[in-house]
Write a protein that binds this DNA or RNA. Sequence first.
DNA 1: TATAGTGCCTGACCCAAGGGGAGAGTCAAT
DNA 2: ATTGACTCTCCCCTTGGGTCAGGCACTATA
Lengths: 267, 267
Amino acid sequence: MFTVGEFSRICQVSIKTLHHYDRIGLLTPLKVDPFTGYRYYGQQQVERMLLISRLKRYGFSLDEMKSLLECEDERVLFSRLSRQKEVLKAQRRETELAIAELSAHLQDFQKTGDIMGYQKNYEITVTETTDRVVIASRQVMAVRDFGRYYGALYERIARERLTPDGVCGAVYYDEEFNHESTDIELIVGIREKDRADKIMKGQLCAWTVHRGPYSSLSDAYGALVTWIEENGYAWDGAPYEIYIKTQFDSLAPEDWETEIFFPVKRK
Amino acid sequence: MFTVGEFSRICQVSIKTLHHYDRIGLLTPLKVDPFTGYRYYGQQQVERMLLISRLKRYGFSLDEMKSLLECEDERVLFSRLSRQKEVLKAQRRETELAIAELSAHLQDFQKTGDIMGYQKNYEITVTETTDRVVIASRQVMAVRDFGRYYGALYERIARERLTPDGVCGAVYYDEEFNHESTDIELIVGIREKDRADKIMKGQLCAWTVHRGPYSSLSDAYGALVTWIEENGYAWDGAPYEIYIKTQFDSLAPEDWETEIFFPVKRK
DNA sequence: TATAGTGCCTGACCCAAGGGGAGAGTCAAT
DNA sequence: ATTGACTCTCCCCTTGGGTCAGGCACTATA
């Protein structure tokens, strides 16, 4: 049996952490002296603690670990670990994106001598758009569920034998920003005018192209809003994006292209 | 000028976040109505906010951003961004390590049908070690500074024209576990017995080999401690590791090998 | 001009995963 | 018996916000 201090040295974990794990019931000592409150740990606890350290490296939260370690079914355990591997891979992708973005930023910085140099890269013009014939699906969704809803739209196209014209985008109606649930309408352009869900009337729009991953899309929105204000226009409807070059063209995120349209009117 | 709601939509940031940034002084509105307390933001704030979002993606803390954005010298700014890129790369390496470790774990799991199956991989034996002739450097250091102190040792070997015999390791004297400062003695074996800092006397040791990255080293320590207790031995001195296969053999972390020696005596 | 429907304010409390320190009690060796 | 190391509980602190609650402010419509 080990005291907390010994146990902490063996497992390379701080005493504070052990107290914490005891309180939340993740790792309780083998025995606690009822009079002094001293904690005594045994071998089994060493093994459990080392497993906990591992799971922590895998990115599990303490809560998740608790339910994991209570889990009896080994297949469930296995699939939970496998899923976590996907989570780690997603995290790696995100870090890679950030590295790519930062690298591009450093280049812009060096060229322009301005940490905000990247903002000058947006060429903004006003155009009269033509009508767009689209099928649409509007709902409140989390940004990360985009893929799922697009899937449904494309299934519908197949089922109803429609002909997509290559346009693919999203309209933002949000009245309040919220990553978890935003009022978005996904649109896919089709040729069959009579069977469309709606026709987006041509309209005066401030327009620009964003090159790079979606995480920096709001830079483009910001540039547009600033430009609109500075050039004597005013908003006139919900802005929308059209995806021009995406991952489906097997391009890296830094080469993706998105057109952004902001309906405006003269002030 | 925009109200918080508008501003939050433009910048894709929640109102609560804007309140928070205002309180900590990271992003203060252009104007605050002294009677109603309403916040009004301008274009400059849009740019600043978007830059903040970027910096957040790069992994800066809000505190770091504050000092970054107050920084006047562009060379300092540039080098801070460059350093952050290294931080992101280190993070990516760590995630990759975790993925590799988890993959290996899943294989062990599948083979043994036990989530703790990996623990059975340690073959532990008791041996009488031979004397080791070493130069040594003992101090309280952070684990991450290992490299720096080893550099100093190898410089000394070059300067004093000593002959390393290929042994390279570390002795752990810690009385209290702490990642930031631990009492460690780095050792490098040499041939010149008369010019050594010390001779580690041969001793009875429980011994095992750890295969894999250093993050899971404590598994080996745990296995040893358990084994020692179960087999009627007792600790008898500070444990030490010898690095057998490392990154300097241009191997991936999952192939590194570390021998661990735990001085023991019969109980 | 009254009123409804938003929008916005502050303040208080909450989360994870512990860290730091105070003040008091315990253990083991001298 | 005393010292020094060890441990206990309790409370507050951190980061980056989220979540109400209660109370004003603004604007459009009737």
